[in-house]
Design a protein around this nucleic acid. Sequence first.
DNA 1: TAGGCCATCTGGTCCT
DNA 2: AGGACCAGATGGCCTA
Length: 313
Amino acid sequence: MAEFDANNNSALPLPEKAQEKYSLRPRASLKREEPDEDHEDSWKPSTRGRSTKRRQKPKPLSRYRRKTANARERSRMREINEAFEALRRAVPHLAVDAHNEKLTKITTLRLAMKYISALSGLLTAAPSAQSSSSPNSAAEAAAIVAATTTICGGGISGSGGLVGTAAMSSSSAPLLTTTDHLAALGCCLSPSTSDDVDSLLSEYASDLLCGGGGGSECSSAASTVGFLTDHHHHSAAFLRDLPGAAATYSLSPSSCSTSATDVVGFPSPLLSADFPVDVAAAFMPFADHPLPPIDFNGDPYMFEDNFACTEFS
DNA sequence: TAGGCCATCTGGTCCT
DNA sequence: AGGACCAGATGGCCTA
């Protein structure tokens, strides 16, 4: 079994020829050199592909064709990167975290997988619950996407960021449980929670939403709570007041407006403070499962409540 | 300084 | 023949 280093390259000592071939060299020398005898000898058919029999060595590309091939490759990679950029925007996430980093490609792909998985899970779990209240799966999925997008900041750009809130405030908006909401939201978060408050909130969410059980939805909810706590101490207030209050006080869609930053506590510029969100409308679909009040025995995080919408209290 | 991430160059293979 | 796709190699940049 061959050994590989961190870059997935063979860690075994290279034969003399290979060392010559793979030795470090300045980028400038990467330009095509005239074929020589060594190159001729070292050429072997690739193991990739179907044919294993020896083929004739392909003729090296001319300088012109090499240049055009490189240009095409750059263009191809640019398209791929644009697609990644689109995917970053499509997948709800904290676009700007504490370190001002953007999602890496691999992180983007993983988040997309989680997000799709969470939404698929909701769609497969939802039919029985929604059969009486009529909304279809697509509407529900759209509402989840919209809510998550709104909350997480995806799709917000300048003046046109109110993705989905209009749909959710309509009378036909599907009802989603708080668990649904948190599960969908949690899929876009990547918590690195380790402190006591995070653990506490995660456990709380797990117990509260899932009765202490396991499951991906449960962990997503716990992740959400943990992440929110990790990044903003208003999260406890958010958890306590928003979904619960929406149910308890039967808010009308137009009863409260504030900035998303005030509500969820996500740091600017993730959600612009100038970006208006109809809070009640956004959370009306999640109002059917009220959360009980949270008691953290005086935990200071719990009561740092700058929640701006007084109609809730 | 090591390791992660990325862009770019390059050659091999497949397809039209 | 030429383009698309792919993977290996390499070096630059950045962060822990």
